[in-house]
């Protein structure tokens, strides 16, 4: 069955994905709101930058993060000036890399949900003299809930499945950066296919359940949007 190293990797992965998901919701919501509402010419470029991790090969992204976070890179010099030191090979380095890597998976569902709201609920709230902050927290957020739930699940699942970026900046440190996908990879490379199958099986089962949840939830969401409920 699972070794201690496997369990460490599973626990680490869950911890990483949870923290990343919370941060993504915090960072992604204002970006999604801005993208959903703005008429600025910057909408296109910003949307494209957010979506870049969808297209770039993870190892390419990881390599440039390694360079940028290194002692000669801009981010590395910034973190050193702050006294944090260098980010690669640390848990928090992985967290930051994962936030960048999974950003489109969180921003896009939230943005879509917010766009689908249209102007009317906001206008109605405005005529009732509801201020902009209250409008956002009491109207926009509750009505966009399906988008947030999809975003959280996709962000979490995508971080669990992350490999290339972690491989590039992680350094394979037990309980710090050795996540499940890396552990599986190590087993394959070491020709320990049995252990690899076991962990990979767990991952397949987990991903299936997550996706099943997303699709089940989306169907419900559609129904309520059509007023069927």
């Amino acid at each position: 069955m699972f070794t201690t190293a496997d369990l460490d990797a599973i626990w680490l992965t869950l911890r990483l994905a949870s923290i990343v998901t919370v941060l993504l919701l915090i960072v992604g919501t204002p970006i999604a709101w801005w993208l959903a509402r703005t008429r600025s010419w910057l909408k296109g470029p910003v949307g494209a930058i957010v979506a870049l991790p969808l297209v770039l090969p993870p190892t390419v992204l990881g390599f440039y993060m390694l360079v940028a976070m290194g002692p000669n890179g801009a981010i590395g010099q910034f973190t050193q000036a702050l006294g944090i030191g260098l980010l690669p090979f640390s848990f928090w380095g992985l967290v930051i890399a994962s936030v960048v890597y999974s950003l489109p998976f969180v921003v896009q569902p939230i943005q879509n949900a917010m766009q689908a709201l249209g102007e009317r609920p906001l206008e109605a709230a405005a005529t009732l003299r509801v201020g902009p902050w209250e409008r956002f927290f009491c109207v926009v957020l509750p009505l966009s809930k399906p988008g947030f739930i999809t975003a959280a699940i996709l962000g979490f699942a995508h971080t669990v499945g992350e490999f290339g970026v972690v491989l590039m900046i992680g350094g394979n440190i037990p309980q710090e950066t050795r996540v499940v996908s890396v552990q599986i990879y190590d087993y394959v490379e070491a020709m320990e296919y049995g252990q690899a199958h076991l962990l990979a099986g767990l991952m397949v089962a987990f991903s299936f359940v997550v996706l099943l949840g997303v699709y089940g939830f989306q169907r419900q969401g559609n129904n309520s949007m059509l007023g069927v409920k």
Binding site: G70, F89, N172, I173
Partner: peptide
């Protein structure tokens, strides 16, 4: 203080970029 590359090319990268 070990950081491990999955192969020697990656290990080289860690040192060449100054991260190790």
């Amino acid at each position: 203080k070990w950081v491990q590359g999955e192969n020697i090319a990656q290990t080289y990268q860690f040192v060449a970029t100054g991260n190790a």
